[in-house]
Every structure is written in C-alpha cells, then in structure tokens.
C-alpha cells in the first residue's frame, strides 16, 4: 500500500513538473517558444494573459503565439495571470527584470498595470494591449481589440430589434468591479436608453462570471417570473450556458425567447445552431491575432502603429452560424 502511494505521488509530482515545463500553450508558468541558447538572437516578447482557464483568452494567446512562432525569430513567453491583478503585476516585473523586447498585456484591470506600462515606456519597450484597453494617459501603448461598450451596445441593439416593444426581457450583467463589467453595462444601458425601452427591462441582476452562478440565478428568477419573460441579455457566453440550462430545466422553451450573448465560443455557436440561443456577438479572434502580428512587425521595423486598432465583430445567429461553426 505504501509503495503504491509513494509511486502515485511520485507520478503526480512528475506530471506537475511536466505541466510546468512543457505546456505548449503557456498554461501556468512562462513558456518560451524558443530555446535558451537562442534567446539572445531572438526578439523576446512577453505575453501576459489575464487567465489561461478561459476559452476566449486562451484562443487569443494561442493565435498570437502561433503567428510569432511562424515568424521564426521571435521568442514568445506567456504568463498566466489567473484573474489576479497582483499576480499579473508581479509577472510583468519579473519579465522586465529578465529583459524583454516587447510586452503584450491582456490586463486583469486597467489601473494596476499603468505603472508597469510607464516603466516599459521609460525603458523603451513597446507595449501592446489586446482585447482590453487602457485609459488615455496611461502611457504609450497600442490597443488591439473591440470596444466593450460597442460590443454590448451591438448585442443589446440586436435584442431590441428582435423583440417587439412592450415585450419584457431579463438583463444579467457582471458583478461590478472590473473595467469590462463597467463598459459592457454602460453599452447595454445606452442602447436601451437610445431605443427608449427602459420599461421593457423585467429585472436587472448581477452574476459572478461563471456558468454555475448564472444558472443558479436564472433558476431563482424563473421561480419569481415563471415564463413571463420574452428575452434574456447577458454579457458573456459562459453565463448564457447557465441561463439556457435553467430555462430547459424549468421545461420552458429557449427557442421561443430572444437570448443574446457575447464572445462567439464554439459551444455558444452550437446553441445558436440548435435554436436555443438567438445570437452571440463573435469577436473575430483571427482578425485580432493578425492585427496584433502586424503591430508587432511595425514596431520591429522601427515604426509606430496606430494607437487604437479595432477588430471585426460579427453577430452570429441562425442566418450565418454555419459559416463560423467549423
């Protein structure tokens, strides 16, 4: 028994070491794409991901990493912030002390990384932020991504266009505390105000950014409102899975309602295909990665790319889901 336990623990430790050292996607610790001996010849890019355990963010990271590796002379190192602002700042500090040629940040929050952006500026290290931008005056950087305000505005506009005036909808938003939450909330509220449809909001509730939390919340809301709602708007795909599970569990028909979301993840598009989700706003990750690579090359050749580079967003619904669900 003891030998078995010792063997199991040894195996576990070996696996965890392997996980830290050979992960192709830069899961938890830094994962240089090039060898140590080559690092001095290569252009060193440090990529700071907000959280590796997030489909959308992992796809962005992998897309940029693949393009850097294809370039052949770039050493790409990825760090996992694990949704922790302090951890992300520490990782940036560590990378700067090791020496890098460029920094790409997907910030957990905008404020905590400002001082690090400014340190990079002073050291002459170019800074890119992807998916989440920084406030003007935070330093010199190039932002590549969408505007969260516009994303939520587009999503809400779609819902309002597909829901007759007077029909009621449930608005689910992120728990406040992050820039993304604030921007998407403002975008949705602005679209509702512009359409003069404030009275059509049945209720507004906040959820922690998990499927389980959104599902619990929606189950409780169904206890209160039953089937007396015609639409649901929520600010990411993760939450919409929970919403649809709850509607199905209550033996209501999700396809009879207008349900909208943001992200365009594969399972969400499968739900669009099956008719349970009306629309998800897909952020075009390929476009984001291409434009990031163009910005990298511009910096490397001595130029300066535009301050804000916006990517395409696509409303994926029944009319076009087959194009994107491959």
């Amino acid at each position: 028994m003891k030998k078995f336990l010792a063997l199991f623990l040894s195996l576990a430790m070996a696996l965890s070491l392997a996980a830290c050292s050979t992960s192709p996607s830069g899961s938890d610790e830094e994962t240089p794409a090039g060898g140590e001996e080559e690092s001095s010849e290569k252009y060193r890019i440090a990529y700071f991901n907000r959280d590796d355990a997030d489909d959308f963010l992992a796809n962005i990271r992998d897309g940029i990493q693949a393009r850097c590796e294809a370039a052949g002379d770039i050493e790409f190192t990825s760090y996992n912030g694990a949704s922790d602002s302090a951890e992300q700042v520490t990782q940036i500090e560590d990378a700067l002390s090791r020496g890098v040629d460029m920094v790409i940040i997907l910030p957990q929050d905008k404020e905590s990384v400002i001082s690090k952006v400014q340190e990079c500026n002073e050291a002459g290290i170019p800074v890119l932020t992807v998916s989440v931008g920084l406030e003007e005056g935070s330093g010199d950087f190039t932002y590549i991504g969408t505007n969260d305000y516009d994303l939520a505005y587009q999503e809400t506009q779609y819902l309002l266009e597909h829901l007759e005036p007077g029909k009621k909808f449930i608005y689910l938003r992120f728990t406040p505390g992050s820039y993304v939450a604030a921007q998407r909330d403002e975008g949705t509220l602005a679209a509702i105000a512009d359409a003069g449809r404030e009275d059509d909001i049945l209720t507004t509730m906040e959820y922690q950014n998990t499927t389980a939390a959104a599902q619990k919340l929606m189950e409780d809301l169904i206890q209160v409102y039953g089937d007396d709602f015609d639409g649901v708007i929520s600010h990411n795909d993760k939450s919409i899975y929970g919403v649809i599970n709850a509607i199905n569990a209550a033996q209501l028909d999700p396809s009879s309602k207008v349900i909208c979301s943001i992200d365009g993840e594969v399972p969400a598009m499968e739900l669009v295909k099956s008719g349970q989700l009306t629309m998800t706003v897909k952020q075009d990750i390929e476009d984001m990665c291409d434009k990031t690579m163009e910005a990298i090359e511009t910096y490397r050749s001595g130029g300066t790319p535009e301050h804000n580079i916006y990517i395409n967003t696509i409303a994926v619904d029944a009319s076009n889901v087959d194009e994107y669900l491959t």
Partner: peptide
C-alpha cells in the same frame, strides 16, 4: 489547477451538451 489547464488547454470541452452525460445533473 495545473492538471486541469494541462488536460483542457484552458478551453471548455465541447461534445457533452445534450448527451446522456447531462442526465446526471439535469
């Protein structure tokens, strides 16, 4: 946490929605 990231690559796992797997929870 490390093992989860390793086996999933940080992505949701498609292929279980609407299958017998969901009978246990739903």
């Amino acid at each position: 946490q490390g093992m989860t990231l390793l086996i999933t690559g940080g992505r949701s796992i498609p292929g279980t929605m609407g299958t017998s797997y969901t009978l246990i929870g739903q």
